[in-house]
Design a binder for these strands. Structure first.
Lengths: 240, 240
DNA sequence: TCCTGTCGGTACGAAAGCGTACCAACCCGT
DNA sequence: ACGGGTTGGTACGCTTTCGTACCGACAGGA
């Protein structure tokens, strides 16, 4: 009946920082719960904080002039939201950061975060590695959007999400998925059917559950594995 | 009849570095000419160098398991190839780096580059800013691939290229463009026609020339302007 | 000059995805 | 128990892009 040690934050990226740096960050942070679809910032806004998810999942969305949006990355407890702050570019956010799955996370003041980063080479190294993983993530999204079918991309999305909140099921509607994938709601409905009839997932009104990871992986594009690998290399994820 | 001052390298990113840092980098570098379609590295290879283009243009390509590829960013004398090295991740390249337009560039040994980066906060800041611009570039590519037509994306590509090599014309075939855009060769041919008949470009066998930038911008998607802005913010490009 | 390989224009049916719409099933609050 | 809003299944015709193929135009080497 071990409780998690008090020096663990619950965010795996944070937990790989040197204890002093982590303490300095955690000390000045608030554990903040984000409800579903809460926005951390919109394009153009100043980024006052960075956010390390613990329980929930965040999405980074690219937004077009006419309001359409497409998800470019998801962030769970393996990462952080606000890489631009790490890169010293907090004046104007490039996209929208939105909570996907409600949950807690550590909200850290931007100034404090920058100070801690400046003070520790090890922090810089780790976050550089994380930035690289995000680059790979977004790159893979670019190629995925160009070359893969809605069904493959949906399977990929579900897998990535499932990795982050298992064993919970995904509280998402087709409408919501459509916005993430940048397709019609009806296209999502069409894409869900084959995944379900293959026995890979089950879904009811507003919920999706993974039944067979392997089968689902087979229906997804390779992008899933590539991105997963990038984060694994960084964090040595325990493979569930 | 001023010659360019000897302390200018011809690469605008490099030229914004502090003189000592720039000198330290340039000193250990080779000015290397890359012919068209020369590869700097393939996915998975170790990245032994970084490259600062002076005359030519490089492409970063994402590659799929089955050999298809899509361009995710272009790099001219406003940037560098090898952001991953800056991020401390040189072991395995994530994509392919290929020369697009032949030309010179500064090839710098990875170890030396890392040492110079470690030694100068200002270098870290500038390259962090550049990394951020690349992130925006790739993000925009992701949304562009999802939402915009071949014709819009072609117009965007031509504009981005033209910014980097004007007043030269673009030595590219439809086949080549198809690989960059991730579409059929025939789709490129179809997309070229309206751009030409609008008077925005002229093309002959293996070459494309921009006739009317404004008109071409109107036919391109907004992505062109957004990405351009990101690099302008970093480098204060003189607007031609 | 000829020959050969490259380049680009065009065509065809097929597939994927889109915009729109309609309606039934379901959930929740009253 | 009712009613209104949400969710998802389905359908229709349309547009974009695909895969493939054929062929003429052009360029550069022999």
């Amino acid at each position: 009946m071990e409780e998690s040690a008090p020096e663990e934050s619950g965010n795996r990226l944070l937990d790989r920082l040197p204890p002093e740096a982590r303490a300095a960050l955690v000390e000045g942070s608030r554990l903040e719960h984000l409800a579903q679809r809460r926005t951390l910032w919109e394009p153009g806004e100043r980024m006052d904080h960075v956010y390390f998810p613990v329980g929930g999942v965040m999405s980074l969305l690219a937004v077009t002039r006419d309001g359409a949006s497409v998800e470019v990355a998801t962030v769970g407890n393996e990462g952080m939201v606000g890489v631009a702050v790490f890169l010293g570019q907090r004046r104007r956010a490039a996209g929208r950061a939105m909570s996907q799955i409600p949950g807690d996370g550590l909200l850290i003041d931007g100034d404090r975060f920058e100070a801690v980063v400046r003070a520790s080479t090890r922090v810089q190294e780790l976050l550089s590695g994380y930035t690289h993983a995000v680059l790979i993530h977004i790159t893979q999204g670019a190629i995925c959007n160009r070359l893969h079918s809605v069904e493959q991309r949906l399977a990929r999305w579900v897998l990535e999400m499932d990795d982050r909140i298992r064993p919970e099921e995904l509280p998402v509607t087709h409408e919501f998925l459509a916005q993430m994938l940048g397709v019609r709601r009806a296209s999502v409905t069409d894409a869900v059917a084959p995944l379900q009839s293959a026995g890979a997932i089950a879904h009811e009104r507003g919920r999706i559950r993974v039944l067979d990871q392997n089968r689902l992986t087979g229906l997804a594009c390779e992008c899933y594995g590539i991105v997963r690998q990038a984060y694994d290399d960084l964090l040595d994820w325990p493979t569930p």
